[in-house]
Measured scan of single mutants.
Amino acid sequence: KRCPSCQAPIEKNEGCLHMTCAKCNHGFCWRCLKSWKPNHKD
């Protein structure tokens, strides 16, 4: 998949759905690609 903010390629190996892009530091949900918020729901 690609970061929804900067389009950098992102690879997920394991862990939770909260992802942070290493290039732009954007926090997002791996499943729905929406911005991550404390009360995030898919």
Rank of each mutant, 00 (worst) to 15 (best):
K37S: 14
K34E: 12
C29A: 01
P4T: 11
H40V: 11
N39A: 11
L17H: 09
L33E: 11
I10W: 02
H26W: 02
K37N: 06
I10S: 06
C29K: 01
N39T: 13
N39V: 09
F28K: 05
P4G: 12
C29E: 03
E14Q: 08
H26G: 11
C24E: 08
C29D: 03
S5V: 14
P9E: 12
I10M: 10
H18R: 11
I10D: 11
L33T: 05
K23A: 09
A22M: 12
T20L: 09
H18D: 05
K23W: 01
S5Q: 15
W36G: 10
L33G: 06
H26R: 07
E11A: 07
S5L: 08
P9A: 07
F28S: 10
R31Q: 14
S35G: 08
W30K: 04
R2T: 13
C24M: 02
K34L: 01
A8E: 13
L17A: 10
W36S: 13
I10V: 08
C24W: 01
A8Q: 11
P38A: 09
I10C: 08
C29P: 00
F28A: 07
E11M: 04
D42S: 04
P4W: 08
W30G: 13
C16L: 09
K1G: 00
W30H: 10
L33Q: 08
K41I: 02
N13V: 12
C21H: 00
A22L: 05
C32E: 09
K37M: 06
P9S: 04
R31E: 13
C21Q: 02
F28W: 06
F28L: 06
K23D: 06
M19V: 14
H40N: 15
L33N: 03
N13L: 14
K34M: 04
M19S: 11
E14D: 09
P4D: 00
K34Y: 00
Q7P: 07
C21S: 05
I10L: 05
C3A: 00
K23M: 05
C24A: 03
C24G: 05
Q7M: 13
H18A: 08
R31S: 10
C29H: 02
Q7F: 07
D42I: 01
C3E: 02
K34S: 07
A22D: 14
C29Q: 02
E14K: 02
Q7D: 15
K23E: 07
F28C: 07
C3S: 05
C16T: 15
N25R: 06
C6A: 10
E14T: 09
R31H: 12
K1I: 13
P38Y: 00
H26V: 05
A22V: 05
L33W: 02
P4A: 13
S35H: 04
C3R: 01
N39Q: 08
P9F: 04
K37Q: 13
A8W: 14
S5E: 15
I10Y: 01
C21L: 01
C16H: 13
T20I: 14
S5A: 15
I10E: 12
S5W: 15
C24Q: 04
W30C: 00
W30Q: 10
H18Y: 02
C6F: 00
K1R: 00
D42L: 03
K12W: 12
A8K: 11
H18N: 02
P4N: 00
K23I: 03
C29N: 01
S35D: 11
C21E: 08
D42V: 04
H26Y: 09
H26D: 12
K1N: 13
T20H: 08
L17D: 11
Q7L: 11
K37A: 13
A22G: 06
P38K: 04
G15L: 02
A22I: 10
R2M: 15
P9L: 04
F28Q: 12
C16K: 15
N39I: 09
G27A: 14
H26P: 08
K34T: 05
P4Q: 04
S5C: 13
F28V: 06
N25D: 13
T20R: 08
N25V: 06
N25Y: 00
N13S: 09
K12R: 07
N25Q: 12
H40C: 06
A8R: 08
H26Q: 07
E14N: 06
E14F: 02
N13E: 11
C21D: 06
W30T: 11
E11G: 04
C32P: 00
K1T: 04
D42Q: 07
L33S: 01
A22E: 12
W36E: 14
M19W: 06
C16M: 14
E14G: 10
N39S: 11
N25C: 13
S5Y: 05
K23C: 01
N39K: 12
W36N: 04
N39W: 07
K34G: 07
K41W: 01
K41G: 13
C21M: 00
F28N: 13
T20S: 05
K1Q: 01
L33H: 05
K41D: 00
F28T: 06
E14I: 05
M19A: 10
W36P: 12
K41L: 05
G15M: 02
K34A: 03
C21K: 02
K37I: 10
C16G: 15
L17I: 05
K1S: 01
D42K: 02
N13T: 14
L33C: 03
A22F: 00
R2Q: 15
K34C: 04
L17R: 01
C3W: 00
N13C: 09
R2C: 12
K34Q: 08
C21G: 02
P38V: 07
Q7G: 14
H18P: 03
F28D: 13
T20D: 07
K12C: 06
P9K: 04
K12G: 14
W30L: 08
K41S: 10
C6W: 01
R2F: 10
K41C: 15
C21V: 01
L33V: 03
S35C: 07
E11Q: 03
K12M: 06
C24L: 03
D42C: 14
S35Q: 12
P4Y: 14
